[in-house]
Write a protein that binds this DNA or RNA. Structure first.
Lengths: 225, 225
DNA sequence: TGCTTGCCTTGACAAATGTCAAGGTTTTTT
DNA sequence: AAAAAACCTTGACATTTGTCAAGGCAAGCA
């Protein structure tokens, strides 16, 4: 092997090794950043000790999603609670006619998952995917329950969250059974301005149970006023 | 006073006293029966001691409602969890146009109340009234929380109930954003046959967010098939 | 019993919403 | 930079649903 070519090989190897090391460092940095986001979120709500956080971190796993990548596909069992550290997910299902119906938006600092699959061990009817590039913290159901049992403050927090969530769902039902398309749209953008800016209109339509065309017209009407 | 008239007075007094005694007995019987219904319900779900039940009973109050009588009127603060021992309640609100929208049906062994008024101390937007003559067990929010703190099994049970309720609400949202009037109706009667038989059609319409006339036509269509 | 009220249905019509198809714009990907 | 994909809007038309009004039946009340 001539000298120059062996030198080239060496360079390549060095480069690869450096890349590989970089990747590892990046990977651990990512974990740190993700857990940090989750910890921030919790610190805002409850008082936990460093050991508590250690416990939670020890059973957390992480996932990075590109746009349009699935976290969960209908038909599979998904027994995780997913916390969005960064990005934006949607939870939806596809009916027999192929239409998508969005059940839930989850931006940073919100939870997602499928309660019914968690409870029943049955395959989910829902899809969850990323609208934007996202970073997700995952807690396996068993570990989540373990944390609830071990850390009473966490348990209280979860219950409070459940309760608040019930209120939100109730308001959504309220809107669904009593408002027109235009009223639902106005209600939505006033309640969730930050979501309105981040997701395409046809997804809001899907969330509201209205066709994209109707929502487009409705919004024009509303803009005029 | 002639003898015969004094005798009549005596008879009247005796009668009144007997009536009064009967009423007292009836009243306590009613309490017993109501709490018994609640206890039966709980025994079916969790294991509590007699002392636990004693604690719960000591902070329970009771209410009997005639048809159409309010348990809660919009505008007042209502900080109770209400358990239906017997009868049938509905939770609804009235919009600016005077239309009623039913949020929730509560037959025997179901809970009702207004979570948002309980949490916020604010006047409720909802009305709750009795569709049938009903007997209600009331637990003041503070006492309810006290019971949760004192009896862990009760707390777990409440959380599980909250969770199940979230599933039910989710299914309702699912139906609302994706089904036609007919599909919603079919879905409803298959999920809640016992409710369908007990409440007038226009209330089901109101629950589904559909006009009574449409539901009447839709049901005829469906019956043909 | 008779009267009132509530409930359900039906028709005619109006209004809201959905569907299909096309075109233009923006964003994403290559 | 070019190509592809996603997104939004618009028009024409179909379908669904709501509204108003009237009548009949049944249940509850006096």
């Amino acid at each position: 092997m001539p000298r120059s070519s062996s030198q080239a090989l060496n360079d390549t190897l060095n480069l690869n090794i450096r890349n590989f090391a970089d990747q590892i460092v990046n990977f651990f940095n990512l974990l740190l950043i993700m857990f940090h986001a989750f910890r921030k979120y919790l610190e805002d709500k409850i008082n936990l000790t460093d050991e508590d956080y250690g416990l939670i971190e020890s059973v957390s796993s992480f996932k990075k999603l590109r746009r349009r990548q699935y976290l969960l596909q209908a038909g599979s069992v998904f027994r995780f609670h997913a916390f969005v550290c960064k990005g934006f997910l949607r939870n939806y299902y596809v009916d027999e006619k192929g239409q998508e119906h969005i059940m839930h938006f989850a931006p940073e600092n919100y939870w997602t998952g499928d309660r019914s699959s968690i409870d029943s061990y049955l395959p989910s009817k829902y899809d969850i995917d990323a609208i934007e590039e996202s970073e997700i913290l995952l807690l396996k159901m068993e570990n989540f329950e373990m944390i609830r049992k071990t850390i009473p403050a966490f348990n209280d927090f979860v219950n409070e969250t459940l309760n608040k969530n019930a209120l939100v769902m109730q308001e959504r039902i309220h809107a669904n059974i009593s408002l027109s398309a235009e009223e639902k749209y106005v209600d939505f953008i006033s309640k969730y301005p930050s979501i309105s800016n981040r997701v395409p209109l046809h997804m809001i339509a899907s969330y509201l149970g209205v066709s994209a065309e109707t929502l487009s017209r409705v919004r024009r009407q509303f803009a005029k006023k």
